[in-house]
């Protein structure tokens, strides 16, 4: 059990580093989602099932969608081009 726990902890630190150092904001957000799932696994190993359930639902589902909405807000030109392409296709 300890070896598995150490493996999860190393992976957790790696995903946190990627979320911190990635150039693209989108990669950092997806890495943060993986970080949340791994944190839920850590909570299960630490015998806290309630906290693990909350962490899995909120930090990898809700927070990620909040980040994606706010990120797409700052990318308006791309969205506009995409919509125009669709309009031309029709």
């Amino acid at each position: 059990m300890t070896a598995f726990f150490a493996f999860v902890c190393v992976f957790l630190a790696l995903t946190a580093l990627v979320a911190s150092e990635a150039e693209e904001v989108l990669s950092a957000v997806i890495s943060l989602s993986v970080f949340g799932v791994l944190m839920a696994m850590v909570f299960v190993i630490l015998q806290a099932p309630d906290v693990a359930l909350t962490q899995a639902v909120i930090n990898s589902g809700l927070v990620t969608s909040f980040f994606l909405v706010a990120y797409s807000q700052t990318q308006k030109p791309n969205l506009l081009e995409q919509k125009q392409d669709i309009g031309d296709g029709q």
Binding site: P49, D50, L53, T54, V57, G61, L62
Partner: peptide
């Protein structure tokens, strides 16, 4: 394990899924 906080978050996720 569970309760109001987790279940409420699941319901919010369902509405977000419908919205997307």
């Amino acid at each position: 394990p569970g309760g109001g906080f987790q279940g409420g978050a699941v319901f919010a996720t369902v509405t977000i899924l419908l919205c997307i």
